[in-house]
Design a protein around this nucleic acid. Sequence first.
DNA 1: GCTGCCGTATTATTATGCGATACAACATGT
DNA 2: ACATGTTGTATCGCATAATAATACGGCAGC
Lengths: 272, 272
Amino acid sequence: MDSQKTAPPTPARRTEPNPLYVASVEKAFDVLKAFRRGQAEFGLRDLGLSEIARLAGMDKSAAQRFTSTLVALDYLAKDPITRRYRPAVKLADLYFTYVISNRLAEIAMPRLIEAGKVYDTTVNLCELCGTDIIYTIRIPHEKARFEATIAGRRVPAFCAAGGNVILAHLPDDERQAILDASPLRPLTDETIIDPTAIRSRIARARRAMFDIGVNQAMMHEISTAAPVFNAEGKVVAAVQIPVYSPQWSLADARRKIVPLAVETARAISGSL
Amino acid sequence: MDSQKTAPPTPARRTEPNPLYVASVEKAFDVLKAFRRGQAEFGLRDLGLSEIARLAGMDKSAAQRFTSTLVALDYLAKDPITRRYRPAVKLADLYFTYVISNRLAEIAMPRLIEAGKVYDTTVNLCELCGTDIIYTIRIPHEKARFEATIAGRRVPAFCAAGGNVILAHLPDDERQAILDASPLRPLTDETIIDPTAIRSRIARARRAMFDIGVNQAMMHEISTAAPVFNAEGKVVAAVQIPVYSPQWSLADARRKIVPLAVETARAISGSL
DNA sequence: GCTGCCGTATTATTATGCGATACAACATGT
DNA sequence: ACATGTTGTATCGCATAATAATACGGCAGC
């Protein structure tokens, strides 16, 4: 008679036997992560103390301490009447901190803005983070699903055009390690999850120097991407441009959007 | 014989005598903040251990422990050869966490995108955070200075059009408290820092339901803004639209941009 | 009105984070 | 080349600071 109502109790607590490791910091971030999970899995915009405890895999006392601390630091806000917590504006500081110290972003930004105007399309820059890609810069032009317009969004690398072009130019062992670690869960009915199919798609992307995918991460989305290289010739990011059916056909995307992504990526690479 | 070479050693350590307060968490965030300061004050994209210690106001041992844990958690990256640290992609997660759980952002996003197309201008949503405003959503269309295009950017509320329209509709005591707490340091040669001038500008913004400022936070910028209200009639944000001289004149901004900002803000308010 | 769950407050215990110290690897300048 | 002042790394005993158990009050919903 198991009464766990929510997902796997704890996603395997990281055990860092390093004497320089401060465990409290990890737990604070676990609390923040709980909100992302809560939103993704249950559509919750705010969380109560017990929910946080459950989602972050800690007991109520710990949740109490860390929420209290995060509220004092202004990274979490607490509704005084419902007593529920939600992420606070100040979290945006950290994104700024990342981007402002990122030369790649600085160089890419004007070119991405430029590129968006050519066909009035959204243009994104994405970088690898573990087995996912994260959209670090987004220039939205079209009203897609809300999450699809927000910077910081994660998509598994194996099913994103941006992910594929990055994987394609990684050293073999690194690419393999990431694919091995990727849970091949489909995001749409058409997501390719067959390992050999994925591999050949990546190989194609390497030869062509771009990738294009249809309905892989989201329905009605045709996603194109091209790799960005640094001065030493290593992939560091991808320019990704999505367009949406039925306004765009695959043929038109191929003919117009792919070259735009490739050209933009090349321009950025050239200035690194 | 003082050998402190850098700015004020510690910006007054917060002393939280709450038994539920976990001080280590604060220190971890202090380390992250150090990067923002390092960038703002010295233009540094990465920091060495000792620099972090200095900027975050802690000793080398502490800096060592917290950088080490933040690296383990992937919020900081360490260059193995230079041994310097820099903010890592994963920080973008936290921004996403904030925005995705924010109803306001969800409702505003499509209207902001729409608004940007009218005159091909950048459109921003900003929210109050302490004495600053933070740009939470940005739809960039023009290639302004890099920082001016990044979400998470902070500007003192008193000299930002977005800040003024928010302040204008706050309860008197709250507005006063924020102005009292604001360091009235000018950002440009033309920034208004006279308290009574600021007050009358805010009063005007309240009556007019918009604000417009020239060269207040950045040279060549004409900044317009209008307030967004929630269902209970409280200000929660501002729609801000900047245009740049010499492409735009003040008169044109008044005639075209202000109504656009006002209308967009009203549309958002109406859907909250 | 009873029962369960939630958020809050308080406590003793000890594990945990602390910071002094010593070392190594560079850079610097003479 | 050497002496000097950095910087980053590693170790360790001590006491503080974070912990988890517990108890309380409030608010739901049967």
